[in-house]
C-alpha cells in the first residue's frame, strides 16, 4: 500500500520496502527524510530496502550521508539496501563518493539529466 507523504512514500511488496523519495535532498531536507525513513524501517525491518531516487531533482553530499546512514541501519539487522533510478546528476555524485562500490544501483528507467 502506498502511503503518501510530502517528500517520501513507502510501498511494501513482501519482504521488500520501496522508499520513494521526491524533490531535493540537501542538508535541510535530509533531516526530515531520514527521520521518516528510519521510523518505517525500524518498525518493519524489511529484508530488502530500495531507495527510489527517480523523483529526486537535486542531491548534494547531504544525500550521500543519508544513503550511507540508511545502508548502515539496514545492514546492521541483516537486510540489504539498493538505490534505484538516480538521475544523471545524482549518479555523478554517487560515483564521486565511490558509493557504487558499496551499494547496488539499479536502473529500471532511461537515464535523465
Amino acid at each position: 500500500m502506498l502511503q503518501k507523504g510530502e517528500r517520501i512514500s513507502f510501498e511494501r511488496r513482501g519482504d521488500r520496502m520501496i522508499v520513494h523519495i521526491r524533490g531535493e535532498i540537501d542538508h535541510h531536507s535530509a533531516v526530515l527524510v531520514r527521520t521518516g525513513i528510519d521510523r518505517e524501517i525500524m518498525q518493519d525491518r524489511p529484508r530488502e530496502v530500495l531507495l527510489d531516487l527517480s523523483g529526486v531533482d537535486f542531491m548534494d553530499s547531504s544525500g550521500l550521508g543519508l544513503i550511507m546512514g540508511r545502508y548502515a541501519l539496514v545492514t546492521k539487522y541483516g537486510g540489504t539496501l539498493a538505490v534505484v533510478d538516480p538521475s544523471f546528476a545524482v549518479t555523478k555524485i554517487l560515483r564521486l563518493a565511490g558509493m557504487e562500490r558499496m551499494i547496488t544501483i539499479k536502473r529500471t528507467k532511461e537515464k535523465k539529466v
Binding site: A30, D60, S62, G65, M68, L96
Partner: peptide, 14 residues
C-alpha cells in the same frame, strides 16, 4: 554525528 559525508569540498572541487 550529523551523518555528514565529509565530501563537501571534494564535490566543490570536482
Amino acid at each position: 554525528e550529523g551523518e555528514r559525508s565529509g565530501m563537501g569540498f571534494t564535490v566543490m572541487e570536482s
